[in-house]
Design a protein around this nucleic acid. Structure first.
Length: 544
RNA sequence: GCGCCCUUAGCUCAGUUGGAUAGAGCAACUGCCUUCUAAGCAGUGGGUCGGAGGUUCGAAUCCUCCAGGGCGUACCA
Protein backbone atom coordinates (compact mmCIF):
# COMPACT_ATOMS: atom_id res chain seq x y z
CA UNK A 1 0.00 0.00 0.00
CA UNK A 2 1.23 3.49 -0.79
CA UNK A 3 1.05 6.32 1.69
CA UNK A 4 -1.65 7.99 -0.35
CA UNK A 5 -3.79 4.90 -0.29
CA UNK A 6 -3.40 4.80 3.46
CA UNK A 7 -4.47 8.43 3.77
CA UNK A 8 -7.54 7.86 1.64
CA UNK A 9 -8.43 4.80 3.66
CA UNK A 10 -8.23 6.79 6.90
CA UNK A 11 -10.26 9.68 5.51
CA UNK A 12 -12.93 7.34 4.23
CA UNK A 13 -13.17 5.82 7.69
CA UNK A 14 -13.79 9.30 9.05
CA UNK A 15 -16.53 9.96 6.51
CA UNK A 16 -18.15 6.64 7.22
CA UNK A 17 -18.11 7.26 10.94
CA UNK A 18 -19.95 10.52 10.40
CA UNK A 19 -22.27 9.02 7.77
CA UNK A 20 -21.20 11.50 5.13
CA UNK A 21 -21.76 10.58 1.51
CA UNK A 22 -21.41 12.22 -1.88
CA UNK A 23 -17.99 13.59 -1.12
CA UNK A 24 -15.05 12.61 -3.25
CA UNK A 25 -11.77 12.83 -1.44
CA UNK A 26 -9.18 14.66 -3.43
CA UNK A 27 -5.52 14.69 -2.58
CA UNK A 28 -3.18 17.29 -3.98
CA UNK A 29 0.53 17.52 -3.99
CA UNK A 30 1.41 20.87 -2.42
CA UNK A 31 3.92 23.04 -4.19
CA UNK A 32 5.59 24.04 -0.94
CA UNK A 33 7.60 21.44 0.89
CA UNK A 34 6.49 22.78 4.27
CA UNK A 35 2.94 21.72 3.45
CA UNK A 36 3.82 18.05 3.38
CA UNK A 37 3.74 15.41 0.68
CA UNK A 38 0.06 15.38 0.08
CA UNK A 39 -2.80 17.44 1.35
CA UNK A 40 -6.55 17.49 1.26
CA UNK A 41 -9.15 20.21 1.34
CA UNK A 42 -11.71 17.82 2.81
CA UNK A 43 -12.37 19.97 5.88
CA UNK A 44 -13.24 22.93 3.66
CA UNK A 45 -15.50 20.78 1.54
CA UNK A 46 -17.27 19.50 4.61
CA UNK A 47 -17.76 22.91 6.15
CA UNK A 48 -20.89 23.52 4.15
CA UNK A 49 -22.37 20.09 4.86
CA UNK A 50 -21.69 20.08 8.58
CA UNK A 51 -22.21 23.77 9.23
CA UNK A 52 -18.98 23.97 11.16
CA UNK A 53 -15.81 25.93 10.73
CA UNK A 54 -13.25 24.27 8.43
CA UNK A 55 -10.58 24.49 11.12
CA UNK A 56 -12.76 22.67 13.67
CA UNK A 57 -13.49 19.90 11.22
CA UNK A 58 -9.82 19.65 10.35
CA UNK A 59 -9.02 19.20 14.01
CA UNK A 60 -11.59 16.42 14.30
CA UNK A 61 -10.10 14.62 11.32
CA UNK A 62 -6.60 15.07 12.64
CA UNK A 63 -7.56 13.59 16.01
CA UNK A 64 -9.24 10.57 14.49
CA UNK A 65 -6.39 9.93 12.09
CA UNK A 66 -4.30 6.94 13.10
CA UNK A 67 -0.62 7.57 12.51
CA UNK A 68 1.09 4.49 11.17
CA UNK A 69 4.81 4.98 10.74
CA UNK A 70 4.91 2.55 7.87
CA UNK A 71 3.03 5.16 5.85
CA UNK A 72 2.59 8.55 7.46
CA UNK A 73 4.81 10.30 9.98
CA UNK A 74 2.60 13.26 10.85
CA UNK A 75 -0.53 15.21 10.03
CA UNK A 76 -0.71 18.98 10.26
CA UNK A 77 -3.41 21.60 9.85
CA UNK A 78 -2.53 24.71 7.91
CA UNK A 79 -4.03 27.76 6.31
CA UNK A 80 -7.82 27.93 6.08
CA UNK A 81 -8.21 24.23 6.89
CA UNK A 82 -5.85 22.14 4.81
CA UNK A 83 -4.76 18.82 6.22
CA UNK A 84 -1.16 18.13 5.30
CA UNK A 85 0.26 14.63 5.44
CA UNK A 86 3.92 13.80 5.69
CA UNK A 87 5.08 10.52 4.22
CA UNK A 88 7.10 8.24 6.48
CA UNK A 89 10.53 7.42 5.08
CA UNK A 90 9.91 3.74 5.69
CA UNK A 91 7.28 3.82 2.96
CA UNK A 92 9.66 5.49 0.55
CA UNK A 93 12.28 2.79 1.08
CA UNK A 94 9.78 0.05 0.45
CA UNK A 95 8.67 1.61 -2.79
CA UNK A 96 12.25 2.15 -3.84
CA UNK A 97 12.96 -1.55 -3.56
CA UNK A 98 9.71 -2.21 -5.39
CA UNK A 99 11.05 -0.24 -8.36
CA UNK A 100 14.26 -2.25 -8.35
CA UNK A 101 12.33 -5.47 -8.11
CA UNK A 102 10.02 -4.95 -11.07
CA UNK A 103 12.43 -2.92 -13.20
CA UNK A 104 11.17 -2.52 -16.74
CA UNK A 105 7.61 -3.15 -15.61
CA UNK A 106 7.63 -0.13 -13.32
CA UNK A 107 5.19 2.45 -14.66
CA UNK A 108 3.13 -0.10 -16.54
CA UNK A 109 -0.27 -1.12 -15.34
CA UNK A 110 -3.10 -3.46 -16.27
CA UNK A 111 -5.94 -1.03 -15.73
CA UNK A 112 -7.00 -1.24 -19.37
CA UNK A 113 -6.11 -4.90 -19.78
CA UNK A 114 -8.31 -6.67 -22.29
CA UNK A 115 -9.33 -3.41 -23.96
CA UNK A 116 -8.54 -2.60 -27.56
CA UNK A 117 -7.74 0.82 -28.88
CA UNK A 118 -7.29 2.01 -32.43
CA UNK A 119 -5.42 5.17 -33.16
CA UNK A 120 -5.49 6.71 -36.59
CA UNK A 121 -2.93 9.33 -37.44
CA UNK A 122 -0.72 10.84 -40.13
CA UNK A 123 -3.13 9.62 -42.86
CA UNK A 124 -1.44 11.84 -45.42
CA UNK A 125 -2.38 11.05 -48.98
CA UNK A 126 0.57 9.90 -51.07
CA UNK A 127 1.21 13.15 -52.89
CA UNK A 128 4.54 14.05 -51.34
CA UNK A 129 7.02 13.43 -48.53
CA UNK A 130 5.95 13.86 -44.92
CA UNK A 131 6.51 17.37 -43.70
CA UNK A 132 7.27 18.78 -40.30
CA UNK A 133 3.55 19.36 -39.95
CA UNK A 134 2.86 15.65 -40.38
CA UNK A 135 5.71 14.98 -38.00
CA UNK A 136 3.90 16.44 -35.07
CA UNK A 137 0.89 14.22 -35.62
CA UNK A 138 3.09 11.20 -36.26
CA UNK A 139 5.10 11.56 -33.07
CA UNK A 140 2.05 12.41 -30.97
CA UNK A 141 0.12 9.45 -32.34
CA UNK A 142 2.89 6.95 -31.80
CA UNK A 143 3.57 8.21 -28.30
CA UNK A 144 -0.08 8.14 -27.28
CA UNK A 145 -0.16 4.59 -28.64
CA UNK A 146 2.82 3.71 -26.45
CA UNK A 147 1.19 5.31 -23.42
CA UNK A 148 -2.05 3.42 -23.97
CA UNK A 149 -0.08 0.20 -24.27
CA UNK A 150 1.62 1.03 -20.98
CA UNK A 151 -1.71 1.05 -19.17
CA UNK A 152 -2.80 -2.21 -20.75
CA UNK A 153 -4.51 -1.39 -24.04
CA UNK A 154 -3.93 -3.52 -27.08
CA UNK A 155 -3.30 -0.81 -29.66
CA UNK A 156 -3.64 -0.76 -33.43
CA UNK A 157 -1.85 2.04 -35.28
CA UNK A 158 -3.73 2.85 -38.45
CA UNK A 159 -3.01 5.01 -41.48
CA UNK A 160 -5.95 5.97 -43.68
CA UNK A 161 -5.35 7.09 -47.21
CA UNK A 162 -7.02 7.87 -50.45
CA UNK A 163 -5.25 7.18 -53.72
CA UNK A 164 -8.02 8.30 -56.02
CA UNK A 165 -9.57 11.60 -56.92
CA UNK A 166 -8.44 14.92 -58.17
CA UNK A 167 -5.24 15.40 -56.25
CA UNK A 168 -3.91 12.05 -57.44
CA UNK A 169 -4.71 12.98 -61.03
CA UNK A 170 -2.78 16.20 -60.57
CA UNK A 171 0.07 14.17 -59.13
CA UNK A 172 0.09 11.83 -62.13
CA UNK A 173 -0.04 14.73 -64.53
CA UNK A 174 2.82 16.45 -62.69
CA UNK A 175 5.00 13.37 -63.14
CA UNK A 176 4.00 13.02 -66.79
CA UNK A 177 4.95 16.62 -67.56
CA UNK A 178 8.33 16.24 -65.85
CA UNK A 179 8.84 13.07 -67.85
CA UNK A 180 8.15 14.95 -71.07
CA UNK A 181 10.63 17.59 -69.97
CA UNK A 182 13.25 14.87 -69.63
CA UNK A 183 12.51 13.90 -73.18
CA UNK A 184 13.54 17.41 -74.15
CA UNK A 185 10.09 18.88 -74.64
CA UNK A 186 9.53 22.46 -73.71
CA UNK A 187 6.84 22.29 -71.06
CA UNK A 188 5.15 25.10 -69.25
CA UNK A 189 4.74 23.51 -65.83
CA UNK A 190 1.45 24.68 -64.27
CA UNK A 191 1.71 26.57 -60.99
CA UNK A 192 -0.97 24.49 -59.34
CA UNK A 193 0.87 21.21 -59.95
CA UNK A 194 3.30 19.56 -57.56
CA UNK A 195 6.54 21.46 -57.79
CA UNK A 196 8.86 19.33 -55.67
CA UNK A 197 12.15 17.84 -56.73
CA UNK A 198 10.79 14.41 -55.82
CA UNK A 199 8.42 14.61 -58.81
CA UNK A 200 11.40 15.05 -61.12
CA UNK A 201 13.15 12.12 -59.43
CA UNK A 202 10.15 9.89 -60.00
CA UNK A 203 9.92 11.02 -63.63
CA UNK A 204 13.57 10.14 -64.06
CA UNK A 205 13.11 6.55 -62.85
CA UNK A 206 10.26 6.20 -65.34
CA UNK A 207 12.44 7.66 -68.06
CA UNK A 208 15.25 5.26 -67.19
CA UNK A 209 12.91 2.31 -67.41
CA UNK A 210 10.81 3.24 -70.41
CA UNK A 211 12.94 5.68 -72.39
CA UNK A 212 10.69 7.64 -74.73
CA UNK A 213 8.07 4.90 -75.11
CA UNK A 214 5.56 6.80 -72.99
CA UNK A 215 5.85 9.97 -75.02
CA UNK A 216 2.35 9.59 -76.47
CA UNK A 217 0.87 8.07 -73.31
CA UNK A 218 -2.09 10.16 -72.18
CA UNK A 219 -3.48 7.71 -69.64
CA UNK A 220 -2.10 8.87 -66.30
CA UNK A 221 -2.40 5.51 -64.56
CA UNK A 222 1.20 4.47 -64.90
CA UNK A 223 2.56 7.86 -63.85
CA UNK A 224 0.17 7.99 -60.94
CA UNK A 225 0.90 4.47 -59.75
CA UNK A 226 4.65 4.92 -59.95
CA UNK A 227 4.41 8.17 -58.03
CA UNK A 228 2.20 6.65 -55.38
CA UNK A 229 4.45 3.68 -54.88
CA UNK A 230 7.58 5.75 -54.67
CA UNK A 231 6.05 8.27 -52.30
CA UNK A 232 4.59 5.60 -50.04
CA UNK A 233 7.95 3.88 -49.86
CA UNK A 234 9.45 7.16 -48.72
CA UNK A 235 6.71 7.76 -46.18
CA UNK A 236 7.12 4.30 -44.69
CA UNK A 237 10.85 4.79 -44.53
CA UNK A 238 10.43 8.11 -42.74
CA UNK A 239 8.00 6.57 -40.26
CA UNK A 240 10.39 3.74 -39.55
CA UNK A 241 13.14 6.23 -38.92
CA UNK A 242 10.88 7.93 -36.40
CA UNK A 243 10.79 4.66 -34.51
CA UNK A 244 7.54 2.86 -35.27
CA UNK A 245 5.43 1.21 -37.93
CA UNK A 246 1.76 1.22 -38.75
CA UNK A 247 -0.19 -1.98 -38.25
CA UNK A 248 -2.78 -1.15 -40.89
CA UNK A 249 -2.80 0.97 -44.02
CA UNK A 250 -6.47 1.44 -44.76
CA UNK A 251 -7.33 2.31 -48.33
CA UNK A 252 -10.42 4.42 -48.71
CA UNK A 253 -11.19 2.59 -51.94
CA UNK A 254 -12.05 -0.60 -50.06
CA UNK A 255 -15.05 1.21 -48.62
CA UNK A 256 -16.45 1.60 -52.13
CA UNK A 257 -15.62 -1.92 -53.18
CA UNK A 258 -17.36 -3.40 -50.18
CA UNK A 259 -20.46 -1.27 -50.53
CA UNK A 260 -19.91 0.64 -47.30
CA UNK A 261 -20.33 3.97 -49.00
CA UNK A 262 -23.70 3.09 -50.47
CA UNK A 263 -24.78 1.71 -47.11
CA UNK A 264 -24.13 5.06 -45.46
CA UNK A 265 -26.11 6.97 -48.06
CA UNK A 266 -28.90 4.43 -47.87
CA UNK A 267 -28.97 4.48 -44.08
CA UNK A 268 -29.12 8.26 -43.92
CA UNK A 269 -31.70 8.38 -46.67
CA UNK A 270 -33.96 6.14 -44.60
CA UNK A 271 -33.66 8.65 -41.78
CA UNK A 272 -34.71 11.42 -44.14
CA UNK A 273 -31.30 13.06 -43.98
CA UNK A 274 -30.38 12.82 -47.66
CA UNK A 275 -31.66 14.99 -50.47
CA UNK A 276 -30.79 15.48 -54.13
CA UNK A 277 -30.53 19.09 -55.08
CA UNK A 278 -28.72 21.07 -57.79
CA UNK A 279 -27.38 17.82 -59.21
CA UNK A 280 -25.60 16.91 -55.98
CA UNK A 281 -26.44 14.68 -53.04
CA UNK A 282 -26.71 16.56 -49.76
CA UNK A 283 -26.45 15.45 -46.16
CA UNK A 284 -29.06 17.49 -44.34
CA UNK A 285 -26.92 18.57 -41.40
CA UNK A 286 -29.27 21.47 -40.81
CA UNK A 287 -31.83 18.95 -39.53
CA UNK A 288 -29.30 17.95 -36.87
CA UNK A 289 -28.78 21.43 -35.54
CA UNK A 290 -25.95 22.62 -37.79
CA UNK A 291 -26.09 25.91 -39.61
CA UNK A 292 -25.89 24.51 -43.13
CA UNK A 293 -26.19 21.33 -45.17
CA UNK A 294 -23.16 19.54 -46.58
CA UNK A 295 -22.53 17.95 -49.93
CA UNK A 296 -21.92 14.21 -49.80
CA UNK A 297 -21.73 13.53 -53.52
CA UNK A 298 -20.72 16.23 -55.94
CA UNK A 299 -22.62 16.82 -59.16
CA UNK A 300 -19.63 15.24 -60.90
CA UNK A 301 -20.54 11.99 -59.14
CA UNK A 302 -17.47 12.04 -56.89
CA UNK A 303 -18.10 11.92 -53.15
CA UNK A 304 -16.62 14.57 -50.88
CA UNK A 305 -14.34 13.41 -48.08
CA UNK A 306 -17.25 13.44 -45.62
CA UNK A 307 -18.95 10.42 -47.08
CA UNK A 308 -16.04 7.96 -47.01
CA UNK A 309 -14.93 9.39 -43.65
CA UNK A 310 -18.36 8.57 -42.26
CA UNK A 311 -18.27 5.06 -43.68
CA UNK A 312 -14.76 4.62 -42.29
CA UNK A 313 -15.80 5.61 -38.78
CA UNK A 314 -18.79 3.30 -38.92
CA UNK A 315 -16.34 0.51 -39.75
CA UNK A 316 -14.13 1.47 -36.82
CA UNK A 317 -17.03 1.24 -34.41
CA UNK A 318 -18.21 -2.04 -35.88
CA UNK A 319 -14.73 -3.45 -35.32
CA UNK A 320 -15.50 -3.40 -31.63
CA UNK A 321 -12.71 -1.16 -30.38
CA UNK A 322 -13.15 0.18 -26.86
CA UNK A 323 -11.37 3.38 -27.77
CA UNK A 324 -11.01 5.03 -31.16
CA UNK A 325 -8.65 7.96 -31.47
CA UNK A 326 -8.28 10.27 -34.46
CA UNK A 327 -5.41 12.71 -34.59
CA UNK A 328 -5.97 15.58 -36.99
CA UNK A 329 -4.19 18.76 -37.81
CA UNK A 330 -5.98 21.99 -37.08
CA UNK A 331 -7.00 22.32 -40.73
CA UNK A 332 -9.41 19.41 -40.24
CA UNK A 333 -11.22 20.99 -37.33
CA UNK A 334 -14.35 21.65 -39.33
CA UNK A 335 -14.65 18.16 -40.75
CA UNK A 336 -15.22 15.96 -37.76
CA UNK A 337 -18.45 17.41 -36.30
CA UNK A 338 -20.34 16.59 -39.51
CA UNK A 339 -18.78 13.16 -39.77
CA UNK A 340 -19.57 12.32 -36.16
CA UNK A 341 -23.09 13.66 -36.63
CA UNK A 342 -23.58 11.31 -39.56
CA UNK A 343 -22.23 8.34 -37.62
CA UNK A 344 -24.50 9.18 -34.71
CA UNK A 345 -27.49 9.61 -37.01
CA UNK A 346 -26.88 6.09 -38.27
CA UNK A 347 -27.43 4.90 -34.74
CA UNK A 348 -23.88 4.32 -33.54
CA UNK A 349 -22.43 5.33 -30.21
CA UNK A 350 -19.75 7.90 -30.95
CA UNK A 351 -18.61 8.26 -27.34
CA UNK A 352 -15.76 5.87 -27.98
CA UNK A 353 -14.33 8.21 -30.60
CA UNK A 354 -11.88 10.78 -29.32
CA UNK A 355 -10.83 13.40 -31.81
CA UNK A 356 -7.54 15.03 -30.93
CA UNK A 357 -6.61 18.15 -32.80
CA UNK A 358 -3.01 19.24 -32.91
CA UNK A 359 -2.44 22.87 -33.72
CA UNK A 360 -0.13 23.90 -36.48
CA UNK A 361 3.60 23.96 -36.48
CA UNK A 362 4.73 27.42 -37.36
CA UNK A 363 8.15 27.37 -38.91
CA UNK A 364 10.41 30.31 -38.49
CA UNK A 365 13.81 30.71 -40.03
CA UNK A 366 15.99 33.70 -39.25
CA UNK A 367 12.98 35.32 -37.64
CA UNK A 368 10.85 34.91 -40.78
CA UNK A 369 7.78 32.76 -41.02
CA UNK A 370 7.96 29.97 -43.56
CA UNK A 371 4.68 28.95 -45.10
CA UNK A 372 4.49 25.26 -45.81
CA UNK A 373 2.65 23.74 -48.72
CA UNK A 374 3.19 20.29 -50.20
CA UNK A 375 2.18 21.50 -53.61
CA UNK A 376 4.58 24.43 -53.68
CA UNK A 377 7.36 22.31 -52.24
CA UNK A 378 8.74 25.06 -50.06
CA UNK A 379 8.39 22.75 -47.09
CA UNK A 380 10.98 21.18 -44.88
CA UNK A 381 10.51 17.45 -44.86
CA UNK A 382 10.49 15.34 -41.76
CA UNK A 383 13.51 13.50 -43.11
CA UNK A 384 15.43 16.72 -43.53
CA UNK A 385 14.58 17.67 -39.97
CA UNK A 386 15.83 14.33 -38.67
CA UNK A 387 19.01 14.74 -40.73
CA UNK A 388 19.58 18.08 -39.05
CA UNK A 389 18.77 17.40 -35.41
CA UNK A 390 18.35 13.64 -35.06
CA UNK A 391 15.40 11.47 -34.14
CA UNK A 392 15.54 12.05 -30.38
CA UNK A 393 15.44 15.83 -30.65
CA UNK A 394 12.73 15.64 -33.30
CA UNK A 395 10.50 13.50 -31.13
CA UNK A 396 11.19 15.48 -28.00
CA UNK A 397 10.45 18.75 -29.73
CA UNK A 398 7.05 17.58 -30.92
CA UNK A 399 6.17 16.10 -27.55
CA UNK A 400 7.31 18.76 -25.13
CA UNK A 401 4.35 21.02 -25.72
CA UNK A 402 0.64 20.73 -25.34
CA UNK A 403 -0.77 19.65 -28.68
CA UNK A 404 -3.49 22.28 -28.71
CA UNK A 405 -1.00 25.08 -28.53
CA UNK A 406 0.78 26.28 -31.60
CA UNK A 407 4.25 24.93 -31.95
CA UNK A 408 6.79 27.53 -32.85
CA UNK A 409 9.63 25.74 -34.51
CA UNK A 410 12.65 27.92 -34.97
CA UNK A 411 14.72 26.17 -37.60
CA UNK A 412 17.85 28.21 -37.19
CA UNK A 413 17.72 27.59 -33.45
CA UNK A 414 17.09 23.88 -33.90
CA UNK A 415 20.10 23.62 -36.19
CA UNK A 416 22.50 25.83 -34.31
CA UNK A 417 21.73 25.07 -30.71
CA UNK A 418 20.55 21.54 -30.90
CA UNK A 419 22.96 20.50 -28.17
CA UNK A 420 21.17 22.84 -25.80
CA UNK A 421 17.90 21.05 -26.32
CA UNK A 422 16.35 19.87 -23.05
CA UNK A 423 16.25 16.29 -24.30
CA UNK A 424 19.99 16.15 -23.68
CA UNK A 425 19.42 17.21 -20.11
CA UNK A 426 17.36 14.08 -19.49
CA UNK A 427 19.60 11.79 -21.49
CA UNK A 428 22.62 13.20 -19.71
CA UNK A 429 21.21 12.13 -16.36
CA UNK A 430 20.90 8.60 -17.72
CA UNK A 431 24.43 8.63 -19.13
CA UNK A 432 25.83 9.88 -15.84
CA UNK A 433 24.18 7.02 -13.99
CA UNK A 434 25.45 4.44 -16.45
CA UNK A 435 28.91 5.87 -16.03
CA UNK A 436 28.79 5.51 -12.24
CA UNK A 437 27.42 2.02 -12.54
CA UNK A 438 30.20 1.05 -14.91
CA UNK A 439 32.72 2.25 -12.35
CA UNK A 440 30.91 0.32 -9.61
CA UNK A 441 30.97 -2.84 -11.69
CA UNK A 442 34.68 -2.42 -12.34
CA UNK A 443 35.18 -2.22 -8.57
CA UNK A 444 33.13 -5.40 -8.25
CA UNK A 445 30.50 -3.71 -6.15
CA UNK A 446 27.26 -5.63 -5.91
CA UNK A 447 24.35 -3.63 -4.62
CA UNK A 448 21.24 -5.62 -5.45
CA UNK A 449 19.27 -6.47 -2.33
CA UNK A 450 22.27 -5.81 -0.14
CA UNK A 451 21.80 -2.17 0.64
CA UNK A 452 20.29 -0.57 3.69
CA UNK A 453 17.97 2.06 2.22
CA UNK A 454 17.50 3.81 5.56
CA UNK A 455 20.94 5.31 5.03
CA UNK A 456 19.31 7.57 2.42
CA UNK A 457 18.32 10.57 4.47
CA UNK A 458 19.73 13.62 2.71
CA UNK A 459 17.16 16.04 1.36
CA UNK A 460 18.34 15.41 -2.22
CA UNK A 461 17.96 11.67 -1.74
CA UNK A 462 14.49 11.85 -0.23
CA UNK A 463 13.24 14.27 -2.88
CA UNK A 464 14.55 12.01 -5.61
CA UNK A 465 12.80 8.95 -4.16
CA UNK A 466 9.56 10.85 -3.76
CA UNK A 467 9.61 11.79 -7.39
CA UNK A 468 10.56 8.32 -8.58
CA UNK A 469 7.52 6.76 -6.99
CA UNK A 470 5.25 9.26 -8.80
CA UNK A 471 6.16 7.72 -12.13
CA UNK A 472 3.18 5.36 -12.52
CA UNK A 473 0.82 8.25 -11.82
CA UNK A 474 2.61 10.40 -14.39
CA UNK A 475 2.26 7.68 -17.02
CA UNK A 476 -1.37 7.14 -16.19
CA UNK A 477 -2.21 10.84 -16.24
CA UNK A 478 -0.39 11.26 -19.51
CA UNK A 479 -2.16 8.28 -21.08
CA UNK A 480 -5.70 8.93 -19.87
CA UNK A 481 -5.57 12.55 -20.97
CA UNK A 482 -3.74 11.80 -24.21
CA UNK A 483 -1.11 14.33 -23.20
CA UNK A 484 2.43 13.11 -23.76
CA UNK A 485 3.88 16.44 -22.68
CA UNK A 486 2.96 15.63 -19.09
CA UNK A 487 5.37 12.71 -19.10
CA UNK A 488 8.01 14.90 -20.73
CA UNK A 489 7.68 17.40 -17.91
CA UNK A 490 7.82 14.64 -15.33
CA UNK A 491 11.08 13.31 -16.78
CA UNK A 492 12.57 16.76 -16.99
CA UNK A 493 11.83 17.31 -13.30
CA UNK A 494 13.27 13.91 -12.49
CA UNK A 495 16.48 14.79 -14.31
CA UNK A 496 16.68 18.02 -12.32
CA UNK A 497 16.36 16.15 -9.03
CA UNK A 498 18.97 13.66 -10.11
CA UNK A 499 21.46 16.33 -11.18
CA UNK A 500 20.99 18.04 -7.82
CA UNK A 501 21.55 14.77 -6.00
CA UNK A 502 24.63 14.08 -8.13
CA UNK A 503 26.17 17.42 -7.29
CA UNK A 504 25.71 17.04 -3.55
CA UNK A 505 25.98 13.31 -2.93
CA UNK A 506 28.93 11.32 -4.15
CA UNK A 507 27.87 7.76 -4.86
CA UNK A 508 31.05 5.70 -4.74
CA UNK A 509 33.01 6.47 -1.58
CA UNK A 510 34.94 4.71 1.18
CA UNK A 511 31.68 4.25 3.04
CA UNK A 512 30.66 0.86 1.75
CA UNK A 513 27.14 0.81 3.20
CA UNK A 514 26.34 4.25 1.86
CA UNK A 515 27.81 3.39 -1.51
CA UNK A 516 25.52 0.39 -1.86
CA UNK A 517 22.47 2.35 -0.74
CA UNK A 518 23.17 5.11 -3.26
CA UNK A 519 23.86 2.63 -6.03
CA UNK A 520 20.38 1.29 -5.40
CA UNK A 521 18.97 4.78 -5.61
CA UNK A 522 20.63 5.64 -8.91
CA UNK A 523 19.74 2.24 -10.31
CA UNK A 524 16.08 2.98 -9.60
CA UNK A 525 16.51 6.41 -11.19
CA UNK A 526 18.04 4.80 -14.26
CA UNK A 527 15.07 2.44 -14.49
CA UNK A 528 12.55 5.26 -14.38
CA UNK A 529 14.37 7.45 -16.89
CA UNK A 530 14.84 4.53 -19.27
CA UNK A 531 11.22 3.43 -18.95
CA UNK A 532 10.03 6.99 -19.45
CA UNK A 533 12.18 7.67 -22.49
CA UNK A 534 11.10 4.34 -23.95
CA UNK A 535 7.49 5.50 -23.75
CA UNK A 536 8.45 8.66 -25.61
CA UNK A 537 10.41 6.71 -28.20
CA UNK A 538 13.61 8.50 -27.23
CA UNK A 539 16.86 6.67 -26.67
CA UNK A 540 18.54 6.37 -23.27
CA UNK A 541 22.25 6.58 -24.12
CA UNK A 542 25.02 4.97 -22.04
CA UNK A 543 27.53 7.64 -22.98
CA UNK A 544 27.30 11.20 -24.14
C1' G B 1 -20.77 36.79 -39.21
C1' C B 2 -20.31 31.61 -37.16
C1' G B 3 -17.23 27.26 -35.02
C1' C B 4 -12.69 25.31 -32.60
C1' C B 5 -7.96 26.70 -30.41
C1' C B 6 -4.53 30.22 -28.23
C1' U B 7 -3.06 34.89 -25.00
C1' U B 8 1.29 33.47 -18.15
C1' A B 9 8.77 36.81 -17.21
C1' G B 10 12.46 40.09 -22.90
C1' C B 11 11.70 35.01 -26.01
C1' U B 12 9.63 29.73 -26.03
C1' C B 13 6.42 27.40 -22.82
C1' A B 14 4.70 24.39 -17.94
C1' G B 15 1.06 25.00 -14.28
C1' U B 16 -1.10 17.78 -11.77
C1' U B 17 -8.60 19.45 -13.64
C1' G B 18 -10.63 25.35 -8.04
C1' G B 19 -5.85 25.58 -3.41
C1' A B 20 -1.48 28.06 0.23
C1' U B 21 4.13 33.07 -1.59
C1' A B 22 2.46 31.64 -10.10
C1' G B 23 7.27 27.96 -12.20
C1' A B 24 11.07 26.09 -15.92
C1' G B 25 14.27 26.54 -20.27
C1' C B 26 16.62 30.13 -23.32
C1' A B 27 18.67 35.28 -23.03
C1' A B 28 21.51 38.79 -19.05
C1' C B 29 24.67 38.92 -14.69
C1' U B 30 27.74 36.27 -10.42
C1' G B 31 30.11 32.03 -8.40
C1' C B 32 31.57 26.33 -8.57
C1' C B 33 35.73 21.27 -12.23
C1' U B 34 42.69 17.62 -8.51
C1' U B 35 37.35 13.75 -6.58
C1' C B 36 31.59 8.87 -10.16
C1' U B 37 30.61 12.98 -17.25
C1' A B 38 30.55 21.15 -16.13
C1' A B 39 25.45 18.67 -22.00
C1' G B 40 25.92 19.86 -14.71
C1' C B 41 25.07 22.71 -9.93
C1' A B 42 24.23 27.21 -6.80
C1' G B 43 22.68 32.31 -6.90
C1' U B 44 20.72 37.53 -8.82
C1' G B 45 17.37 40.37 -11.69
C1' G B 46 12.81 39.85 -14.48
C1' G B 47 4.98 39.21 -13.71
C1' U B 48 -1.52 43.86 -13.57
C1' C B 49 -1.44 35.35 -15.59
C1' G B 50 -4.65 39.94 -22.59
C1' G B 51 -8.85 43.37 -20.26
C1' A B 52 -13.51 43.93 -17.37
C1' G B 53 -17.20 41.80 -14.52
C1' G B 54 -19.23 37.28 -11.98
C1' U B 55 -19.40 32.45 -9.11
C1' U B 56 -16.88 31.28 -3.34
C1' C B 57 -13.65 30.37 2.20
C1' G B 58 -10.10 30.62 -2.27
C1' A B 59 -9.65 31.83 -9.58
C1' A B 60 -4.01 31.70 -14.14
C1' U B 61 -7.72 27.56 -13.79
C1' C B 62 -15.01 27.75 -13.93
C1' C B 63 -19.11 31.38 -16.27
C1' U B 64 -20.33 36.01 -19.21
C1' C B 65 -18.72 40.07 -22.14
C1' C B 66 -14.67 42.60 -24.76
C1' A B 67 -9.77 42.88 -27.33
C1' G B 68 -5.73 40.53 -30.09
C1' G B 69 -3.72 36.11 -32.87
C1' G B 70 -4.16 31.06 -35.45
C1' C B 71 -7.13 27.45 -38.17
C1' G B 72 -11.56 26.46 -40.41
C1' U B 73 -16.28 28.02 -42.21
C1' A B 74 -15.67 24.56 -50.62
C1' C B 75 -19.75 20.49 -55.05
C1' C B 76 -10.51 20.68 -52.01
C1' A B 77 -8.58 16.66 -48.58
Amino acid sequence: MTSEQYVIQQLQAFLKKHRIQDITISLQKPKEEQFGDCSTNLAMQLARHLHKKPLDIATEIQQSFRIDLRYISKVEIAGPGFLNFFVANQNLYEQLSHILKIGRQFGRSEQAAGKRAQIEFVSANPTGPLTIGHGRGAVLGDTIARLLQAIGYEVTREYYFNNAGRQMRVLGESVRLRYLELLGQNIEFPGDHYQGQYIIDIARTIYEEFGDRLQKETDLTLFKDRAEQSIFDDIKHTIKRLGFEFDVFFNERSLYEEGKIDAVVQGLREKGLIEEREGATWFLTSKLGFDQDRVFIKSSGEPTYRLPDTAYHVEKIKSGYDLIIDIFGADHIATYPDVLAAVRALGYDVDKIKVLINQFVTLTENGQKVKMSTRKANFITLDELMDEVGVDVTRYFFLMRNMNAHLNFDLSLARKQSDENPVFYIQYAHARIKSIMALAVSKELKWENKARPEMLKAEEEINLIKHLIEFPKAVEGSALNYEPHRLVNYLFDLATLFHKFYTVCRVITEDHEMTLARLNLIDATRIVIANGLELLGISAPEHM
